[in-house]
Every structure is written in C-alpha cells, then in structure tokens.
Design a protein around this nucleic acid. Structure first.
Lengths: 124, 124
DNA sequence: CGGTTGTTGAGAATCGGTTATCAATCGGAC
DNA sequence: GTCCGATTGATAACCGATTCTCAACAACCG
C-alpha cells in the first residue's frame, strides 16, 4: 500500500486547483486550512513534493521569494510578481523569440519570464 | 571621513569588472582573493552592499541560487543559468513585446528573463 | 470492527545565504 | 610619524525556507 487518500491531501490539491495564481506553501496552508482544519505546514511541504513528483503540480520559482506551486498542464505562460504585496500572478502569453538569444554551444531547455511591478490593488 | 580606498574593495570591484558574467559573493571571493589574499566573505558582502547603494553594481537575482552581481550601466540584457554547474551567463538582447503581457490595472516596472539549460562546458 | 502501516502535526533541526560582533588593523589627514 | 576612525576577518548569530523526528492518528484491507 502506498499513497493514501487523506482529507489533507485532497484539501491541498483542491486549494491549488481553485487558486488563479501560483501559491507558496504558506499560502496553500492558509487556503487549504479552511478545508482541512488543523492542517500543518509540514504536511503541505510533503504533499507538494509528492505532487511535483507525480507530475500534477508545477513549481514556479521567483527570485527573492519562496517557491510557488500551480497545477501542471497549463499552457505556456509567465508570471508577474508584485513588489507591493509579494503576490505572484499568472500572465498570458510569451514574447517568443527566445531561442535566438541562446549563446552558441549552449543547450536551451526552458525559460522563465518574470514581470515586476505593482498589482492592481497595490497600484491604486 | 567615509569611504576609504582599500585594497580589498579595489580587488572586489576589479574582479566584478573583469568577469564576463554576474558573480555570486562566493565567486567574487574566489576571484578577488587572488588580488587581495586573505580576503573574507564578510568584506565581500559589505563591499557589494555599498556598491549597489552607490550605484556602480547591479544585483541579479536568479531563482534557486544566491544573488549575483555585475557592473551597473550595461545595456539591457538577460541571463542564462546552467543547470549543470550553476553558473549564470549573460545573454545579449531581449525578445521585447513585454508590455502587452501586463494585466490591465497592473504597473509594469521591470522584467527579468532567465534561460535555463546547459552551458557550453556542461553540454559537451 | 481490528490490525497494519502510511500519514499527520508540532516543534526541533537543518540549510544556504546573509548580517552582526569585536578586537586587530589600516588609510589618510595633519 | 601620529592619531582617530573607518575597515577588516573570523566566527557566531540570524533569517526564512524546508526537512526531520516521533508519537498519535487515520485510511484501507480483510
């Protein structure tokens, strides 16, 4: 037996699914905590690690802040990090034209574009 | 009196200037250590903070690794982070077309594009 | 239901990065 | 050369993020 179906993991998966932006472990705890009272941070970290391994969760790394997680399988997109509140939002599209930038001899595997600025709330 | 001209700070400034890629504090220590034997990591951190404050050093943040520093005033460019050796390289150009991606109501101040993959050495 | 065993929660421990401490030292004005 | 205050280096302390520990607990099979 391996991989049980627990309330905590369901709550965590559901919280990430409902969010419209990538969540940090602490944000997941806050969101999933209402679905599974008493939820602990360690459990979030464990579930998140499992999710990434199993492939239904994608890690989003933003400079200068904790790793965020979002459901895997979304179409290619990027992120906007608010300097006011620290939240990370999803932005549609990609400027493309990335490949030509790669130096000769280098192997390009992936890329991450992060926009910095103020979100709607903080810009007001 | 404030801001003395010391061998250590000259060595650090020189090491950053000579590098063709942004260096982490530890990398700066290694490089500048040959110019100023006995150099300590604390001194690197202090000098780097001063450099950023005075405006002749620019901080480059890459997800999942220490902050890098490069001379300020370079023309707009981006970076390539090698998954093999962890080094960060400079890449010329920018795909442009960033502004249209910004969600309505958000204020775009800056952006950072990081390419991931293998550098020439690690790709061989 | 009852046992087996994976899972959980709280807190301690750890980690890499960065900053603070403090006595010894050095820069540079005089 | 002297002197005073800025600077340095070694190391401890700190920090936020993440992982480990371990006893209590709950999921699932029979």
């Amino acid at each position: 037996m391996s991989e049980r179906q627990t309330q905590q993991r369901q709550a965590i998966r559901e919280a990430v699914r409902r969010a419209d932006r990538p969540l940090s472990p602490q944000e997941i705890l806050d969101a999933a905590g209402t679905l599974a009272p008493g939820l602990g941070l360690a459990t979030v970290y464990r579930a998140v690690k499992i999710g990434v391994t199993e492939g239904w969760l994608a890690a989003v790394e933003v400079p200068g802040s904790a790793t965020r997680y979002e459901p895997a399988g979304k179409h290619h997109h990027h992120h906007f990090a608010c300097r006011g509140c620290g939240s990370v939002y999803e932005v549609e599209g990609c400027p493309g034209n990335i490949t030509p930038l790669t130096p000769a001899g280098f192997k390009l595997e992936d890329h991450e574009l992060v926009l910095f600025g103020l979100c709607r709330s903080c810009n007001a």
